[in-house]
């Protein structure tokens, strides 16, 4: 399951990287150097991506030519819109660090924080926090 997901990500990377429509063979050849795969494997993965709505395809000759349905940036923007929308009862599916504040509240808090920082300069330097490597 995990492997198939990885494969989907790699195939999508190749389709996004390609300038125009690509065929299964083109993706397989592009992947070949890092990850040799059977033609049918790549075909299955791309078929799945088509059915999930990530790829669109059209008949050219005897095979399909695939294109991404949306660019990577457009997909990311769509996901962030889903994540940030505050209309529904989300918070069940994921937990946010913080919601966006309105400007007045933000200014007031920024002011309060500056005041506290100026009062306790030692705390601001955070001596005991070591940087964590991601």
């Amino acid at each position: 399951m995990e492997r198939l997901g990885d494969l989907e990500a790699e195939v999508m990377d190749q389709v996004w990287a390609a300038r125009g429509p690509v065929a299964v063979r083109g993706v397989r050849d592009a992947l070949h150097r890092t990850r040799p795969l059977a033609y049918t494997t790549v075909m299955t993965v791309m078929d799945r991506l088509f059915h999930k709505g990530w790829l669109v395809r059209e008949h050219v000759g005897r095979s399909y030519q695939y294109r991404p349905a949306l660019s990577r940036g457009e997909y990311t923007a769509r996901m962030m819109r889903d994540v940030l929308s505050t209309t529904d009862d989300r918070g069940l599916a994921l937990l946010h660090f913080v919601d966006t504040m309105d400007p007045a509240e933000y200014e007031a808090l920024q002011e309060a924080l500056r005041w506290h920082q100026s009062r306790t300069p030692r705390a601001a330097r955070s001596p005991r926090v070591e940087d964590e490597t991601l």
């Binding site: 660090f97 306790t120 705390a123 005991r128 926090v129």
Partner: peptide, 21 residues
């Protein structure tokens, strides 16, 4: 346990900053 209160508060503010800020 991993950060000072001021650091955490600052992080909250940075991520809550409205676009117009």
């Amino acid at each position: 346990r991993r950060a000072t209160p001021i650091t955490l508060a600052q992080a909250v503010l940075r991520l809550a900053a409205p676009a117009s800020a």
